[in-house]
Computed example of a mutant assay.
Amino acid sequence: MDDLTGFQRDLLYVIAGIEQPSGQEVKGEVERYYESEINHGRLYPNLDTLVNKELVEKGQLDRRTNYYAITDAGKDAIQDRQEWEHQYVNM
């Protein structure tokens, strides 16, 4: 996960927390956190990066809507990251 941007990590966390969200659902969650609009040109290339790195899988809900789901590799990456963070931030 060390090669992901902060934005990509945020996308991964959102996808891990929602069962098979659509791109629009991911966008809405991230926009609430960032308190600003996320445009498609930023969102979808970063989702594709997560898919290409096999941290997320992409499937079709219908002809126009894709869903995203965390993979085992994505879960492992999040766990590794949390363990790494925990050694520095133990509250």
Rank of each mutant, 00 (worst) to 15 (best):
Q82Y: 11
Q79R: 15
Q60P: 13
L43V: 02
T49P: 08
L4K: 02
L50I: 01
M91S: 07
G28K: 10
H86P: 03
P45V: 05
A69C: 11
Y13K: 13
E29R: 15
K27M: 02
T49D: 03
A69I: 04
N52L: 03
D72K: 12
E25I: 08
Y13Q: 11
L11E: 00
P45G: 11
K53C: 00
D62R: 04
I18L: 12
L11N: 02
A77L: 06
N66C: 06
E57N: 13
D72I: 11
E83R: 14
D62F: 04
T65W: 07
V30Y: 03
Y68P: 05
Q8K: 05
L4D: 03
L50Y: 01
I15C: 00
R64T: 13
N90C: 15
R64V: 14
R63S: 14
N46K: 08
I18E: 01
N52E: 09
E37H: 09
R63G: 12
N52S: 10
F7K: 13
T49W: 01
W84R: 14
Q87C: 07
P21Q: 06
Q8V: 04
V14D: 01
A77G: 10
N90Y: 10
E83K: 15
P21F: 09
L43F: 07
K75W: 12
I70H: 02
N66I: 00
D3K: 11
D72G: 10
E31D: 10
A16P: 00
E35T: 08
Q24E: 10
L55N: 00
E57A: 14
N52H: 12
Q82G: 00
N39Q: 10
K58Y: 04
V89D: 10
K58T: 04
I38S: 09
Y67E: 05
K53D: 04
N46D: 12
Y88P: 07
I18M: 09
T5H: 00
Q79Y: 15
N39T: 06
N90A: 12
K27I: 06
A69H: 02
Y33H: 08
G59A: 06
P45Q: 06
E83L: 14
T71W: 13
P21G: 07
Y44P: 06
D3Y: 13
N39L: 08
V30E: 02
I15M: 02
V89K: 08
Q60L: 15
T65Q: 12
H86V: 03
M1C: 00
L55H: 00
R63Q: 14
I38R: 06
V14I: 13
G6Y: 08
H40W: 11
K53E: 06
Y33V: 10
E25L: 09
R64K: 11
I38A: 03
L12N: 00
G28R: 08
T65A: 09
E37P: 05
N66Y: 05
G17N: 12
